[in-house]
Amino acid sequence: MTALAEAALDEPHPSVAETLYGALARAGDEPVPTLADALDSPDPARRRRAVEALEKIDTLARALDHDGPPRTPTARSP
């Protein structure tokens, strides 16, 4: 699962990255440590992709050791 997380973190094409995030979401919490480590990357694109992947698998709050419940996305205005 680490290889899949690394692939998602390195993928520059948004549509391909989104597909990888979906695969990570189906993996549950297993990729979270790799993605959480990427939040400290000096590469801003890698950090952004880590956030996107963690949001997709709904574990960003746990990855940041947040005490509250994970937030759910809110609807955006058109």
Rank of each mutant, 00 (worst) to 15 (best):
E18R: 11
L54G: 00
A3M: 10
I57F: 15
A27C: 11
G22W: 00
A50Q: 01
P12M: 10
D37Q: 10
T72N: 06
A25N: 08
G68W: 01
A5T: 02
A27W: 04
D65C: 07
A27I: 10
D43I: 09
D29G: 12
P33D: 05
A38C: 10
R46L: 13
T2M: 10
R76Y: 14
T72V: 10
P70G: 14
A50Y: 01
T34V: 15
T34R: 06
H66E: 13
E11M: 07
D58G: 14
T2Q: 15
R26A: 15
Y21N: 14
D37F: 05
P42I: 08
H13A: 15
D37R: 10
E11W: 01
T72L: 13
E11F: 03
T2D: 14
P78Y: 13
P33I: 09
A25R: 08
E52W: 04
E6W: 03
A7D: 11
V51M: 02
H13N: 14
R62C: 03
A27M: 13
R49D: 04
P78Q: 12
P31K: 01
R49C: 04
A27N: 11
S15Y: 06
S15H: 10
T2K: 13
S15M: 13
R26I: 06
T74A: 14
T19R: 12
D29V: 07
P12T: 12
R49S: 04
V51Q: 00
H66C: 15
L60Y: 05
A17G: 10
P73E: 05
E18L: 13
R49V: 03
P44Q: 03
L35H: 00
M1L: 12
G28S: 07
L64V: 11
R48D: 13
A53E: 01
A27H: 09
L20F: 08
G22I: 01
V32G: 01
A17W: 00
R49T: 06
A5E: 00
D65P: 04
D58Q: 15
A45T: 10
D29Q: 11
